[in-house]
Simulated assay, not measured.
Amino acid sequence: MPRLRLLVLGVAVSAALAGTPVAATGAPLAPVPLPLSEEAWPQAAAPGDRLTVSVAGSGVAGSDGTYRLTCRPVGGTHQRARAACDRLAELAGGSQDPFAPVGRNAACTMQYGGDATARVTGTWQGRSVDASFNKKNGCEISRWRSLEPVLPGNAG
Results as ranks from 00 to 15, higher is better:
M1Y: 08
M1R: 12
M1A: 15
R5P: 08
R5S: 13
L6W: 09
L7S: 12
L9S: 14
V11Q: 09
S14G: 14
A15L: 10
L17G: 12
A18E: 11
A23W: 05
A24L: 15
A27S: 13
A30I: 08
A30W: 07
A30C: 09
P33E: 12
P33H: 07
P33Y: 07
L36W: 12
A40L: 15
W41L: 15
A45Y: 01
G48S: 00
D49L: 05
D49H: 03
R50L: 09
L51K: 01
S54Y: 00
S54L: 03
S54N: 04
V55M: 06
A56C: 03
G57Q: 05
V60E: 09
A61V: 12
G62Y: 05
L69M: 03
C71I: 03
C71E: 01
G76P: 01
H78I: 08
H78P: 05
R80F: 10
A84P: 01
A89E: 15
A89T: 13
L91Y: 03
S95Q: 13
S95A: 15
P101D: 07
P101E: 09
G103A: 15
G103M: 05
R104A: 14
N105F: 12
Q111L: 13
Y112A: 06
G114I: 05
G114Y: 03
G114D: 06
A116W: 00
A118R: 00
T121G: 05
T123G: 09
W124Y: 11
S128L: 10
D130F: 04
N134L: 02
N137R: 05
G138F: 04
G138N: 06
G138I: 02
I141T: 01
R143K: 12
W144L: 07
E148Q: 10
G153K: 09
G156M: 14
